[in-house]
Design a protein around this nucleic acid. Structure first.
Lengths: 218, 218
DNA sequence: CCATTTCTGTATTGTTCGATACAGAAAGAT
DNA sequence: ATCTTTCTGTATCGAACAATACAGAAATGG
């Protein structure tokens, strides 16, 4: 039952082909296709037959390589985060001030959510919009919820540091401000899902920063 | 195939019992249970067997009364809006200024999203968080998307009126401001789904209004 | 070479899905 | 009372679901 793949990613310097017949498909490419499908349709509404068709493999290959539908979803989620996280959080982490970090977060989110990668690509963040928790898969739900909580914690940490460095005074409610930022950031995914353009989302980011400036002394 | 119920809700002064055996269950009560289930689990992840169990009826009664799973979802959605819309939009409509209207909208949304009605009730707005469009049901998806668009249009209309009445000057980008408000309002559902409290959501509403004040001359 | 190991494609497992056929029950109509 | 109409409960439909059995193919190790 447990994964017995050929030491899936233990390093990668020695490709370390196992003994038997080699896998005939690119595991990462197949995972990307699965990610796209889960992203667009969600967990429950995506059938194994759709996955195998999109991944270009048979069902036994899918189960041999990924274990189960749940494990495949978990890996697809990890793949998604590894692929897109830097796009949204990279400038946030590098910004010199908390204000610049939050502005970068919202602007980069607006850009990331509106770049069309595929003709019928999913719109909105896979993590933000995932409803897998309510669908009766508590473990997967906890997984995406933890991913969402991480974003909030990052903002809280950055704001705490800014407060310690005197970027704004101690009267600012850091938790409330962080939640405000994450509320907008999440809302951007909902807007993107309903077809909002990049310019429209960037305007939302600007208005949010106006709210920031109204509350935080520069 | 088409609904042949006894003139379902043509008025209600004459209960207007049809000819045959009377229905043994309360249609509205059953619809409420279906709404709760769809709200919590979504369309695809809710099985007919779960619905019949929660509604306390057999499958033939469900199909006789509601037609199909899709039609039941549509009715549950209508039921949801009829039941909760005033709670969120009532004060918005009655407010004397656009600012008061938006503030009421966000505050009332914060309250509505955090009032627990049932032990394991769904959290977040059924319309905002519905992913039925991506699940492969384009018609239902268009239905919820239209419901979401209506909120945006209401805010645009109120802001346009305010601009015409001179509440703020003509340089304000009404569409952008409305989208900002709806982005926050949607984001509140995501926060509520992840367990945010009423006080936390109300703090987000306050920060949003600070942003409003920063952009709009009073 | 042959043995071992692992993957692939076909076919199929048992289960659950959404939706109905059917017979009996409960009402109005006459 | 009898006929007609409509609802209820059981039992079930074909289709689709997630997951596997199995035999053959393709690689390594000896």
């Amino acid at each position: 039952m447990q994964n017995s793949g050929p030491a899936p990613a233990s390093g990668n310097a020695p490709p370390r082909r196992g003994r038997g017949r080699p896998r005939a498909f690119d595991r990462e490419a197949a995972l990307t296709e699965a990610m796209h499908l889960f992203w667009r349709k969600g967990f429950a509404a995506t059938a194994i037959s759709e996955l195998t068709a999109a991944m270009g493999i048979g069902a036994p290959s899918l189960y041999a390589a990924f274990g189960s539908k749940e494990e495949l979803y978990t890996e697809a989620l990890r793949h998604y985060r590894e692929r897109y996280e830097a796009q949204v959080w990279g400038n946030f982490a590098a910004a010199p001030t908390a204000r610049a970090a939050v502005e970068a977060l919202l602007t980069d989110t607006a850009v990331a959510l509106t770049q069309v990668c595929a003709p019928e690509a999913a719109r909105g963040c896979m993590v933000t919009l995932s409803a897998v928790g309510g669908e009766g898969h508590a473990d997967l739900g906890a997984c995406v919820q933890a991913a969402r909580a991480l974003g909030f914690e990052r903002v809280v940490a950055r704001l705490s540091r800014a407060a310690a460095e005197g970027e704004f005074d101690a009267s600012v409610d850091i938790s409330a401000l962080a939640r405000f930022v994450m509320t907008v950031q999440g809302g951007l995914s909902l807007q993107a899902r309903d077809g909002a353009s990049r310019a429209e989302l960037e305007a939302v980011a600007r208005l949010t920063m106006a709210g920031w400036d109204a509350r935080v002394a520069d």
